[in-house]
């Protein structure tokens, strides 16, 4: 997501006095987010910690996170985009209609209060979760919220950050961006990277049956993907690298057990604000690391005659 207005969690911790969680449940999914980064910390700019901060939760359900918030806005399911669009109009004093407000499940007073609080904030931040980015509208919702954050900068400092899920998904984005210029959904079949989510994204590829061999690492699509995608994984030769024998391993042709990253394999992982952190493994594993196994598979491939013929490797910057 190029061009987003964002910051690091360190800045949030020190400066953010207005914190909005949109479509996420940090109390249960990111348990230390409040205490470590957003709500509880004191700083020279916010000496009273929690008391100096306002937290708003926007979600379709009253989750555990609602208890931690000052204001809970219950948006009607699937109406996030409409709500964000209304807010974008309201901050610029554009006319809006009652029917439009009613559609979101909120009242005009709630929206007006929210807008005035946003504008009065010294440093505002939107954290958005899967409830926003994985429901009706998908990435258009995220784009709308990022735009709202950008537009709020006409009035005060405002940023937005996705609440990334488990493991090192942020790292995958960053590494692919660094190496190919694109964050995911990439095809190299013309010899150079092309980006087209919907065409090259895995669920679509599998459901259409557009791949004839799948290499799965650090993920378990056999447990999470729709059934037609799983069926295709079972049909083609699938290779799995994982610390456990997973659902996917059971339908795979090849499974290799690897050392779990951060527990017994060293390396680097990215935090959700794209800060790389070193891992400090505590145990020694009887299994090789992912890195070692992938490198060895790649080396085995390099020994075979290149079916693409003479060609330079596109990405020269493997350092």
């Amino acid at each position: 997501m190029g061009g987003k207005v964002t910051c690091t969690l360190g800045e949030v911790k020190n400066r953010a006095d207005f914190i909005v969680y949109w479509g996420g449940n940090p109390a249960e999914c990111h348990p230390r987010h409040f205490t470590k980064y957003t709500l509880m910390q004191k700083s020279p700019f916010l000496p009273r910690g929690r008391k100096d901060r306002t937290m708003v939760l926007v979600d379709i359900r009253e989750t555990k996170s609602a208890k931690a918030s000052n204001i809970f806005l219950q948006v009607r399911p699937g109406k996030d985009f409409e709500l964000i669009t209304l807010l974008r109009a309201m901050i610029k004093d554009q006319p809006i209609s009652e029917a439009q407000v009613a559609e979101t499940g909120l009242t005009i007073e709630q929206l007006q209060d929210f807008v005035s609080r946003m504008k009065a904030a010294k440093y505002g931040v939107f954290f958005f979760g899967m409830g926003l980015s994985m429901t009706r509208g998908k990435h258009m919702n995220s784009a709308a919220l990022l735009t709202l954050a950008a537009e709020m900068n006409a009035f005060t400092k405002f940023v937005a950050m996705p609440m990334r899920g488990h493991g090192n998904v942020t790292g995958a984005d960053v590494i692919m961006r660094w190496q190919t210029g694109y964050p995911f959904g990439i095809s190299f079949n013309r010899g150079y990277p092309r980006y087209n989510p919907g065409e090259f994204s895995t669920v679509d590829v599998l459901v259409r049956g557009d791949t004839d061999c799948a290499f799965i690492i650090g993920a378990d699509p056999g447990a999470t993907m729709p059934q037609p995608a799983i069926d295709h994984l079972a049909k083609v030769p699938t290779i799995v690298l994982d610390p456990h024998v997973t659902h996917t391993s059971k339908l795979a042709r090849v499974h290799i057990t690897t050392a779990p990253a951060g527990i017994s394999a060293p390396g680097t992982a990215y935090r959700m604000d794209e800060i790389p952190l070193p891992l400090r493994p505590a145990l020694k594993s009887p299994y090789p690391s992912d890195e070692e196994v992938v490198r060895r598979i790649k080396e085995a491939l390099l020994e075979k005659p290149d079916w693409m013929g003479e060609r330079p490797q596109m990405l020269q910057n493997q350092i």
């Binding site: 090192n168 995958a172 557009d210 650090g218 680097t268």
Partner: peptide, 17 residues
Amino acid sequence: MPLVYGMSNTTCEAQRE
């Protein structure tokens, strides 16, 4: 048309490979 997918629960070093 092989597919390389996942890369969540792994290190950046493995992702680069």
